[in-house]
């Protein structure tokens, strides 16, 4: 018999076994679906939160003050030089007049500053830092580089802000890694144990198949197919749960919690990822559960 009728036999056998053990198979798919959904939800929260924190990093700015009065041409030249420095993303020139305007709007009342001439406020360059240079040590390096420019009088930045941000980011990363690892282990544990039910239900069959001369491949193939089918359904169920989560929460939560429901990818991309993850987990679970019975 050729590979085609062999494949047909395996598929018939696997579907037959799924039908005979509908409840167990369904239970496995649903468990897989929930596990994947929890994992996906966690990944989603982490990605969104990380993104939100990343935008906080844009506040890491450095202000460069410089000597004397500047003409338009010099502003342009200085700006280009600063922009060329290592770790600099962009440069904005803040003239004395702009600085005064900002100050006034920040403190609301104009009276307070009525006696102040814009010339008393120095002009400056506001420098935005590249994402990769926002760690305290890197930032110090960037600042040192800027200080070397001979027309620069002083460079100001908040080392404290940089340190706080970096420690918050690191904490989130470590916490996410630890929790993600825990979730992954828990998921694998739950899945293999659930699938073990399916395999356990067929342990006599595995034994008898071996006794009548079945190859390992012949024994494993139906379980492989079962794993694929269960994984497929598990993936679909997890996507359903995820969409349900968004649907229930989206209408009822304030804006600042929107990171809990924004999906970081399109539904189709999520579908593909979740189904692939489901199939991979299903197959892996089948094989891990089966390994024990293959020794017979």
């Amino acid at each position: 018999m050729g590979p085609v009728s062999n494949a047909l036999y395996f598929i018939t056998d696997a579907l037959g076994s799924l039908r005979a053990n509908t409840l167990t198979a369904l239970f496995t798919s649903v468990t897989l679906g929930f596990a994947l959904a929890i994992f996906a939800l966690f990944a989603l929260l982490f990605m969104n939160l990380n993104f939100a924190l990343g935008t906080l990093g844009d506040r890491t700015n450095v202000v460069v003050y410089f000597d004397g009065a500047t003409k338009g041409a010099e502003v342009k030249k200085y700006s280009t030089l600063i922009e060329a420095a290592e770790g600099v993303r962009s440069v904005t020139y803040v003239s004395s007049a702009t600085a005064l305007g900002e100050l006034k709007s920040e403190f609301g009342g104009q009276d307070l500053f009525s006696g102040i001439d814009s010339a008393m406020l120095p002009a400056s360059f506001e420098v935005m830092i590249e994402t990769e240079y926002r760690e305290p040590e890197d930032l110090a390096g960037v600042v040192a580089g800027l200080k070397k420019l001979k027309w620069v009088e002083s460079v100001e930045y908040s080392a404290e802000w940089a340190a706080t941000l970096s420690s918050v980011l690191r904490f989130v990363e470590v916490a996410a890694l630890a929790f993600g690892l825990f979730l992954a282990i828990a998921t694998i544990f739950i899945i293999t144990n659930t699938i073990r039910l399916t395999v356990y239900a067929r342990r006599d069959e595995i034994e008898v198949m071996r006794l009548v001369g079945a190859s390992d491949f012949f024994i494993k193939a139906p379980f492989f197919i079962e794993g694929v089918v269960q994984g497929l359904f598990g993936g679909l169920i997890s996507l359903g749960l995820l969409l349900l989560w968004r649907w229930i929460l989206a209408a009822n939560i304030p804006d600042y919690l929107s990171f809990m429901v924004v999906l970081p990818a399109s539904t189709v991309t999520l579908l593909i990822i979740l189904v692939l993850a489901g199939v991979a987990t299903g197959v892996a679970g089948s094989f891990i559960s089966m390994a024990k019975f293959m020794k017979i």
């Binding site: 018999m1 009728s5 009548v212």
Partner: peptide, 11 residues
């Protein structure tokens, strides 16, 4: 039939 199926005999 299992004894023949595992040998890959046609149905």
């Amino acid at each position: 039939a299992l004894a023949l199926n595992v040998m890959g005999v046609g149905q």
